[in-house]
Each structure stands twice: as structure tokens, then as C-alpha cells.
């Protein structure tokens, strides 16, 4: 099947003469897991609202499995989990799930098994008001998965979750992707989505500034590797002189090198023999890569 799960072409949305989303184009193939990254206010939620048909783009076009956003065909194909959704506190998890099953034209009897799948089997008859944040997000995911949707949209699904809950949540997302659904999830931190996605889109001030795999993004960023060489007593000065780095204190020297020069640099350090006590190699972190693309190196995001 060659049909795109989602296709955006030159999509622009203007609020108060400022482009919230500016000429964004990308395509999602069936079965892909893609992360959409950006700061708060980068335009992620606006983009989602256009995909759902709540907002009309001022320019460009959006197509969901060939259908117009907001049409019944598109709505049937999409499962959506909004950011910070709060189900009615007085209802139980099972009641919430049965409600959405009926709205989507699915058999409400499926909800018991689905609650079991997301680890809420024991809490099914408890009120949502008594759920933890992680449980609520899992209920939200269950709600999104009650219908066999081919495009799953998750808006910042893991913000505010503790690392264990986040882990559990991504395990569930992986199960969904394994069923063949396309997953597009947004996040404001690259570290959250590491290794959980096939492709990464980075949105900055409404513009799409990156669209690639994590490995390619890392390579394209060309961020230097940091080497920190710790010398034996009194050798720091000589190390700095011979390697050309900067002496950071009495014992250590710091130098930066391109990824391509890494091996040569390490060989040069090894030649110093007894002068060197220890070496630390620091690869650019995911946050560094993200900062590089979102265009605010050094600035606080």
C-alpha cells in the first residue's frame, strides 16, 4: 500500500498576523513512528488541530489517508489524545472507555480487555478522580486505541510523567505501532523520545527545521565531541601545549574535535603515555542536538 497516512503540503496558519505554523510540509508513511518536537508555542498543537480539522490552514493542504481533515472518514481513521485531558472525576475508568467506544461506533465490551492491556484492569471500577497522572494518561491512550485507527496522534503524552510511567507509556505506544498504525507524537524534549521513534521532526517558531532519523540528525548537526584529558601531577601544562587544548584547572585539559577526527585525536593523546592519567569522551547530548536545530544554542528554551 502506497497511500500516505498523513500528508501536509506548505501548510501555513496565521494568528494575529503572526504565522503560528509556517510553510510546513511532511509526509508520514503507514506504520511509521514519528516524533514532532518543539518548544511550547512552536506550533505543535496548532498543527494537530489542523490535522484534526478543528482549524483550517490559511495556505497549503492537509490530507489524512486521502481524506479531508475533519471529514467523517478522516475522523474514523484518527485516534487522538489531547494534551492535559481531564476525564470527568465522577466516572470510572471503564465508564469513560465505554463512552468513547460508543461514540466511535465500537463495541463497548472491548473496553475491559483494553483496560487490562494498559494496566488499568484492577482500577477499571474506580473513579477517575482517584487515578494518578500516569494512570490518567494510560486511560487516555486506551480511549485513543478503542477503535482500530490507522493514524494515532498523541499531543505531549508523557509530559509530567515520572520516568517509569513514561517507560510504560512508550511500551504501549510500541504495541500500537506493531499493529501497523502510524504514530505521530509531540514532545518538547528529544531525550523523551530517544530510540522510540523512526523519524524526528523539529518545529521551531512555526517552521519545520529538521526531518530525519536521530542518527542522521546527529551527523548533520556536526556538533563537536568534547575530550577531557586528566594529566598526572604537573603535566597539565605540557599536555595543553602538545595537544592545543585549553587548560581548565591544574590537572585537566579540555579539547573539542569533529566526530571524524575522534580516533586520530585519541591516538595523539595515547602517545603522551605517562603524562595522561585519564580521558573522558563526551558525545553531544540529545539536548545539544535539539538545541542546534531549534536554533537557540545557549539560550534557555
Amino acid at each position: 500500500m502506497t497511500q500516505r497516512a498523513l500528508e501536509l503540503a506548505e501548510v501555513t496558519k496565521i494568528f494575529d498576523r503572526r504565522a503560528a505554523v509556517d510553510g510546513v510540509s511532511f509526509q508520514l508513511a503507514a506504520g511509521e513512528r514519528v516524533a514532532l518536537l518543539g518548544h511550547n508555542g512552536a506550533g505543535k498543537t496548532t498543527l494537530f488541530k489542523m490535522i484534526l480539522g478543528f482549524l483550517k490552514p490559511d495556505h497549503g493542504s492537509v490530507s489524512v489517508l486521502g481524506a479531508a481533515p475533519g471529514s467523517n472518514a478522516a475522523r474514523r481513521a484518527i485516534a487522538y489524545l489531547p494534551e492535559a485531558v481531564a476525564f470527568h472525576n465522577a466516572l470510572t475508568g471503564e465508564e469513560v472507555l465505554r463512552f468513547y467506544a460508543r461514540l466511535k461506533g465500537e463495541d463497548p465490551a472491548k473496553s475491559a480487555a483494553l483496560l487490562e492491556d494498559v494496566g488499568l484492569g484492577a482500577a477499571a471500577r474506580r473513579r477517575v478522580g482517584a487515578y494518578s497522572k500516569g494512570m490518567r494518561q494510560r486511560l487516555g491512550l486506551a480511549q485513543a486505541l478503542i477503535s482500530p485507527a490507522s493514524l494515532v496522534l498523541l499531543d505531549e503524552p508523557t509530559s509530567g510523567l515520572d520516568p517509569i510511567s513514561r517507560q510504560n507509556f512508550y511500551d504501549l505506544v510500541e504495541k500500537v505501532a506493531a499493529r501497523g498504525a502510524t504514530v505521530l507524537l509531540s514532545s518538547h524534549a528529544l531525550t523523551e523520545v530517544e530510540a522510540r521513534t523512526d523519524r524526528i521532526l523539529i518545529l521551531s517558531a512555526g517552521k519545520l527545521v529538521a526531518d530525519n532519523t536521530l542518527a542522521r540528525l546527529r551527523a548533520d548537526a556536526q556538533l563537536p565531541i568534547r575530550l577531557r584529558v586528566q594529566g598526572n601531577d604537573g603535566a597539565a601544562g605540557e599536555i595543553a601545549a602538545r595537544l592545543g587544548g585549553t587548560q581548565v584547572n591544574g590537572r585537566s585539559v579540555e579539547l573539542f574535535c569533529d566526530p571524524a577526527d575522534k580516533v586520530a585525536r585519541l591516538a595523539a593523546i595515547a602517545e603522551l603515555g605517562p603524562l595522561v592519567a585519564d580521558i573522558d569522551v563526551t558525545l553531544p547530548s540529545l539536548d545539544d542536538v535539539y538545541r542546534h536545530f531549534s536554533g537557540d544554542e545557549g539560550a534557555e528554551g
Binding site: F54, R75, R76, Y80, V85, A86, L103, Q143
Partner: peptide
Amino acid sequence: DRGTLQLIFSCPI
């Protein structure tokens, strides 16, 4: 306010 309107309107209703 609860954010559930988005959810409901993303369903075919």
C-alpha cells in the same frame, strides 16, 4: 476546560 471537547469532536460525531 477539561479538554474533553477536543476528544469528543475528534470522534465521528
